[in-house]
Amino acid sequence: MTSLSPDAATVARMIDHTLLKPEATAADVTALIAEAIELGAYSVCVSPSMLPLTIPAGADLKVAVVCGFPSGKHHSSIKAAEAALAIAQGADEIDMVIDIGAAKAGRFADVQADIATVRASIPAPKVLKVIIESAALTDAEIVAVCKAAVAAGADFVKTSTGFHPAGGATVHAVRLMKQTVGDRAQVKASGGVRSFAGALSLFEAGANRLGVSGSSALLSNGTPTIHDIAY
């Protein structure tokens, strides 16, 4: 946790500016990149089929790509191949989805093996974020999955895809995830992060990175609603 409240520029450098809509076009991604640079975001996060991206020379912008998205029900070898191809096509970071059903069934060794297979396909310093779909898990399952992710070599645990009907990031989940991973991994909050106040609440709970599609509105102190962050 942090006792400091970051300003908009600091928050921007913690944002993965995200576009994962199935109908997204190459033109949409080009616009996403331009907006991310203008806002000072840390990265853009896109679907693997949108690679390779053209990042303007001199731009301080990373490329994150999802893997096994959004269901997590892909075979581990497919996830690993998808991740490796994304890295070969210029990705700096991979955001993979676990097999949520395996977690619900208590098969945490299988969850760890799944993550480890992807980790092996993208050796450090490439960054691996593990999407656990926290809203679909109990607290005990969140703790167990976060421990599995750390044991498998993940750099981040991440709350949500933003596509699951159970919901997205919550302060409670982020706090629990951070308490579990400690300094062994970082935490990314994504899914339903729409207001600046909500972003600050997530940072205070322990988030190091945010996945945001409406970054411009958030950084402009877009009008928050009670639905922005669930406690």
Rank of each mutant, 00 (worst) to 15 (best):
V193G: 05
A151P: 08
D114K: 12
G182K: 03
R194N: 06
A135W: 05
A199N: 05
H172E: 13
A189F: 06
G206I: 15
R175S: 15
T170A: 14
P123C: 10
F156P: 04
A124G: 07
V193C: 05
A169M: 14
R175Q: 15
G153I: 14
G162A: 14
G167E: 01
V130F: 01
V127P: 02
S190K: 07
L176Y: 00
D139C: 15
P125M: 02
F163D: 12
A124T: 09
H164D: 14
G211D: 03
V157N: 03
V145W: 01
P123K: 04
H172K: 15
D155W: 08
G211L: 01
F163Y: 13
A140Q: 01
Q186W: 07
A148E: 11
I142Q: 01
E133P: 01
L202T: 05
V171H: 09
L210K: 00
I132C: 08
A144N: 02
Q186K: 13
P165V: 14
A205N: 10
P165M: 07
V171G: 11
I132S: 09
A154C: 12
R119P: 03
A207R: 02
T117D: 06
I122M: 05
S195F: 03
L200W: 05
A199F: 02
G191Y: 09
L200R: 08
V143G: 00
E141G: 08
E204I: 14
T138D: 02
D139V: 12
Q186A: 13
I115K: 09
K126L: 13
A166I: 11
A116D: 04
A136F: 07
V187D: 07
N208Q: 13
A205M: 14
A152G: 12
V171T: 15
V127L: 11
Q186H: 09
T117F: 09
V145Y: 00
R184W: 04
V143D: 00
K158G: 01
I115N: 07
S121A: 14
K147E: 13
Q186T: 09
T170P: 08
V193T: 02
I131E: 02
L202Y: 06
L200D: 03
G192H: 08
M177Y: 04
P125Q: 04
A149E: 08
G162R: 10
A205K: 11
K158A: 03
K126E: 06
V130H: 03
D155K: 09
S134F: 08
V157K: 02
V145N: 04
A135C: 10
F156A: 09
A169C: 11
L210T: 03
T117R: 12
G198I: 14
T180N: 00
F163V: 15
G168K: 13
V181H: 03
A185V: 08
Q112P: 06
A149R: 10
G153S: 07
T170N: 11
T159V: 10
G211A: 00
D110L: 15
T161K: 07
P165L: 13
A149K: 11
G191C: 13
G206C: 15
I122S: 04
S134D: 08
R119T: 01
R194I: 05
A124P: 05
F203K: 14
P123H: 06
G198N: 12
L176I: 01
R209Y: 00
A149Y: 05
